[in-house]
C-alpha cells in the first residue's frame, strides 16, 4: 500500500477516535453545574473565535469581507434564517467585488 494511503488512514483513525470516544462513553446526563454551564458556553466561544478575525480574510478583498460580515451581523441580529444570513453575506460581498475589481 502506498504511503499516501497510510497517511490518509492514520489521520482518519486519529480524528475519528477524538470524535467517537466522548460520544460513545458518556451516557448519563452530567449533573455538575459547572460542567453543564461550561459545555453550554463552548459552542459560542468556539464559533466566535473561529469567525473573528478569520472572516476578514474570507474573501479576496478586505472590504468585501467587512461588508459581508456587517450584513451577516445585521441579518442574524434580526433573527433571519441560516440560509438568509449566509446567502446575504455572500451576495453583499459579491456586489462589493463588482465595484472593486
Amino acid at each position: 500500500m502506498s504511503r499516501v494511503y497510510q497517511y490518509i488512514l492514520l489521520m482518519a483513525l486519529v480524528t475519528y477516535l477524538i470524535r467517537a470516544l466522548p460520544l460513545t462513553l458518556i451516557r448519563r446526563e452530567i449533573k455538575n453545574e459547572f460542567v453543564k454551564s461550561f459545555l453550554y458556553y463552548v459552542p459560542y466561544a468556539t464559533l466566535a473565535a473561529m469567525t473573528f478575525p478569520a472572516i476578514l480574510s474570507a474573501t479576496d478583498y478586505f472590504w468585501s469581507s467587512v461588508v459581508g460580515f456587517a450584513v451577516a451581523l445585521v441579518l442574524a441580529f434580526n433573527r433571519r434564517s441560516l440560509l438568509t444570513v449566509a446567502g446575504g453575506a455572500c451576495a453583499a460581498a459579491f456586489v462589493v467585488e463588482l465595484f472593486i475589481r
Binding site: T59, G68, F69, V85, G87, A89
Partner: peptide, 19 residues
C-alpha cells in the same frame, strides 16, 4: 470571484447561530 464570495458562507452561518 464566485469562490471568493462563497468563502463567507461558512462564517455567515456561524454568525446566524451565535448572534
Amino acid at each position: 470571484r464566485l469562490i471568493s464570495c462563497l468563502g463567507l458562507a461558512i462564517y455567515g452561518m456561524f454568525i446566524a447561530i451565535i448572534i
